[in-house]
């Protein structure tokens, strides 16, 4: 009796470009899931830097494969602003501040993960319903949507100012992934405008964190329970 042969029809693997783009988008979403449960503000900042690095990687990949020289510039500016400047500025702002943000979760971690999973699934299925008929990596687009929704959840479910600021920045990363996948030939000027918006947000959140911590001595937003005229 000879070796039994397996005759199964397998689901074709995605093309290399789609596979790598999907994997990078997946890392962006997973970084957000990690942010949801991280106990230290500096861990969140590092996760944000890692997430931004993934976005830079995606931009370089697209620049190389689609022959878009502008995307290299976008990758370079992204690296400078999101991987180096923003994490450094936020860490600098947090210097001397007790960065323990554990306990700011409004729900238990396992429950938050399950809700985030449901939200991510919602994002993925919404994008599947959109009739995109091109060679775009559909999963990456869906994952970008999922990243945006999970970032919203991060802002909602963590009651501390650092998580809320990082949630906003992470949301921008989700939008970046979507814009890179959908419109990698977006004019450089438009991209630079986005980065400027982001920088303004960083300054705004920086001031907010300092003022809030100065007044209440904590990073938690739970103490903000009264409206004063």
């Amino acid at each position: 009796m000879g070796p039994a042969l397996l005759a199964v029809s397998t689901l074709a693997a995605p093309p290399a470009f789609s596979g790598v783009a999907d994997a990078i988008a997946l890392l962006v979403v997973l970084a957000e899931f990690a942010m949801l449960r991280s106990a230290l503000a500096r861990t969140q900042v590092r996760l944000y830097a890692f997430q931004s690095l993934c976005v830079v990687g995606l931009a370089v990949l697209l620049a190389a494969l689609r022959h878009v020289p502008e995307a290299y510039a976008v990758a370079g500016i992204s690296f400078l602003i999101k991987v180096v400047v923003i994490p450094a500025v936020v860490l600098r702002l947090l210097a001397g501040v007790e960065t323990e943000v554990a306990g700011s979760e409004r729900l238990k971690v396992a429950s938050m993960t399950l809700i985030a999973l449901a939200v991510a699934a919602f994002g993925l299925f919404i994008l599947e319903a959109v009739p995109v008929t091109s060679t775009l990596p559909v999963a990456a687009l869906g994952l970008a949507m999922a990243a945006v929704l999970v970032a919203f959840l991060l802002v909602i479910l963590r009651a501390d100012v650092v998580s809320q600021a990082i949630g906003f920045f992470a949301l921008e990363n989700g939008v970046s992934v979507a814009s890179l996948v959908l419109a990698s030939r977006l004019p450089l000027l438009a991209e630079v405008t986005f980065f400027f918006d982001l920088l303004v947000a960083v300054v705004f959140f920086g001031v907010l964190v300092r003022v809030h911590h100065g007044r209440t001595g904590t990073l938690s937003t739970e103490v903000l329970d009264r409206l004063r005229g």
Partner: peptide
Amino acid sequence: ITEFMAAAFLLSVLAILILYVGHA
């Protein structure tokens, strides 16, 4: 430990989702 189990579950569900939605 439930958090650890939730992380494993998250990865497996994401695997199904991206396989189902984007055939990734």
